[in-house]
Nucleic acid binder design. Structure first.
Lengths: 120, 120
DNA sequence: CAGCATCCAAGATGATACTG
DNA sequence: CAGTATCATCTTGGATGCTG
């Protein structure tokens, strides 16, 4: 069956909602490098709250993009790692990251030009 | 200079905030095909309100990703088209769209598995 | 036609405190 | 350490009405 990307019920749109989660992308990118524990992520992802981290990790795990593994140490240790599926998504995300790095200046310049044009 | 992607002040992060706007991506993708007028976009992008459309178009124009052109007809006609910069972004966005189309089922399956695992 | 201004409801998020 | 629960806040976005 063919889906209309612009319709709400479209599966692609559902995935776009996940993809459009800033924290999810940052976490995914971070886990792509190596498995990381909860509090370490909390420290490294600048600006994220414990609540959002917890919530985002749960979503990512539910989507099969990351894997949660708890070790029976005292106190408990939990390690989050990326899955094969998550890796493939991360690759496409990296394309966007590189675009941003390459074109950040151009966007910034456009903003300055726009603001000047509108002010007058 | 090197930026830390995880820091709030990072330019890449700023761009990510734009990219993470669902409406912006959909509009960009639509304009990539051909120039479209305001009300036509309003009809085609399912679920978007006039307010959001107006707001998103303004942001995209400010970022230099789309171009707004008004024609002095009665009543006025406004056409939005994609810029060269916007086209390059759209290309990378398309990679994501294809990923979503290819992996939607896998994500769905993961969700079902997760929900079942958590319910027990 | 192509918007802008206003009001308001709902959801997202932060801060804080508590737990196995 | 790795979370959960609760409350307060703050943003977001929809609905409506008006305008050049």
């Amino acid at each position: 069956m063919e889906y209309n990307v612009y319709a709400s019920a479209c599966p692609t749109r559902m995935i776009f909602d996940r993809i459009s989660d800033k924290w999810a992308l940052l976490i995914l990118d971070r886990l792509c490098q190596q498995p990381v524990r909860f509090n370490q992520l909390l420290r490294e992802i600048d600006g994220i709250s414990q609540k959002m981290l917890s919530q985002t990790l749960k979503n990512l795990e539910r989507d099969g993009l990351i894997k949660r593994q708890a070790f029976p140490t005292v106190p408990v240790t939990v390690e989050y790692s990326i899955t094969a599926l998550g890796k493939t998504l991360s690759s496409t995300v990296n394309v966007l990251i590189h675009w941003a790095q390459d074109n950040g200046d151009a966007v910034l310049a456009a903003q300055v030009e726009y603001d000047g044009r509108m002010a007058s």
